[in-house]
Design a protein around this nucleic acid. Structure first.
Lengths: 254, 254
DNA sequence: CGCGACCTTGAAATGAATCAAGTCCCGTGG
DNA sequence: CCACGGGACTTGATTCATTTCAAGGTCGCG
């Protein structure tokens, strides 16, 4: 995140949905001006979280859906024993909190990875508006569906046998998301820790660390702590398919 | 699946949503009699698929959501190279096809694991009804949300370091789902192949096969081809937490 | 009755986890 | 402003679970 972004945020915070830079990515996509104004009225408040700040916890009553406006968050579940599984990393324009719709309680925790600002969409009001604006209803469904598709990508990534493939796919998909945000997809800022990345992929830290080193040696990346530059997108794309050049056995379900 | 079930299916097929044995699990849960009749009118047809039959393919235009009425299906994605990742196995009462809402095209393939019957909910009509019946709208959202939560379970399972833990969790969750269907949760019928299970968990067949053998040796299971009996649910629950008795290092994200 | 898909089992190879140091960086407090 | 401390990260050596390779067995079906 460039320092300039933080400065701009102050202005962004004062804007409404209709003028939000994210409105193509966020809920309102494809909704007309009049309806947009009504949606804007339901956005309760636009709060900020510091790094490590918790947006909601597992078990919290469901009050709202949340749109990441700037910064980034992680969502994760934890079992009784404290074992954690990270479910996702969330960039601006992404909506989180859907898991609470099922039971009216959140089934995961959301935590800021850096100073982030969030739009809160109180569900009661959202429901009111969606019932009045059918287009918004359809749009909301579409957004949840996107969430489902996104999780499929996570599953595909985790299903890979080679750790290097997994990390390559992770970086590639992060780059893709950057570009959708009009950011430079080659210059990634990994706001999450190496532990987070490892957990997200089902690996241990040491493996992730070694893979970054290896990919740097191969000339694919330039790694500088949290700053990762993709030097050879073509090679990275290759790694997404093959852990190493030689064709490898796949586990194609019968 | 006991043979008796197949006989009963013929009767089930003639029934409507309001009298369906699954209506507690399926979409209509919590909807009143009058509204139920209207929903029933939108169920276009109740088709059957043979083993291996395809309900929808990746890229197919989105026409409907589908409720599994009897039997079982798998959903999966395939990349250009033919690598497969199984996303889920679906039992009666479960609704599939949500991934198509985002782009109006299916983003996965659904295939029957045995002779199965399916309720088709054409989306155009469903939209009509949900706009008239707010309760159904809320219910539909709740069902999609359940799908999201379900996928989180899949991710948690895949994130485990020990293959034995993964398989144990898989069997445990299958047993739980059986019980929700009023079936004997100790007597599982694995309609999917060992290849499918392996792929679902991100393992290779041989590993899964060995794990079944090992769990049988341990006295946890009785394995007889597709029929698996859980002899010691307590031990199975232990295995869900620990690959082996000794406490093991976890990867708890920082 | 034999073929083929599915499954199991064994032996060997290997990639990731584990164990163990050591370094770097950043925030804190002197 | 610098020293200190602790968490995050990296790297090396070793262990070990799972994959890979190979072969044989079983079952259902033509």
């Amino acid at each position: 995140m460039e320092p300039s972004t933080n400065v701009l945020d102050l202005n962004l915070l004062r804007r409404s949905c209709s003028s939000c830079a994210l409105n193509e990515l966020c809920l309102p996509a494809g909704i007309g001006g009049d309806d947009l104004t009504r949606l804007d009225g339901t956005v309760k408040d636009k709060r900020t979280l510091e790094r490590g700040g918790v947006l909601y916890r597992d078990g919290d009553p469901f009050k709202a859906l949340y749109v990441v406006r700037s910064g980034s968050l992680k969502t994760f579940v934890q079992n009784e024993a404290g074992d954690t599984q990270i479910l996702g990393f969330h960039l601006p324009g992404e909506i989180i909190g859907f898991d609470a719709l099922a039971s009216n309680r959140h089934a995961s925790q959301a935590e800021a990875l850096e100073r982030s600002s969030i739009c809160e969409l109180p569900y009661a009001q959202l429901q009111q508006v969606t019932s009045e604006v059918p287009a918004l209803h359809r749009q909301l469904m579409r957004v949840i569906s996107r969430e489902v598709v996104e999780e499929h990508r996570h599953l595909v990534m985790m299903g890979r046998q080679q750790a290097q493939e997994q990390l390559a796919i992770f970086l590639k998909s992060l780059a893709d998301r950057y570009e959708r945000l009009q950011r430079d997809g080659a210059a990634l800022t990994l706001t999450m820790s190496r532990y987070d990345i490892a957990n997200y992929l089902g690996l241990v830290v040491e493996t992730v660390s070694r893979l970054f080193s290896r990919m740097e040696e191969m000339g694919v990346l330039e790694v500088n702590r949290k700053a990762v530059r993709i030097l050879r997108p073509d090679l990275l794309a290759d790694l997404c398919r093959n852990g190493h050049p030689t064709g490898s056995r796949r586990n194609d379900a019968g």
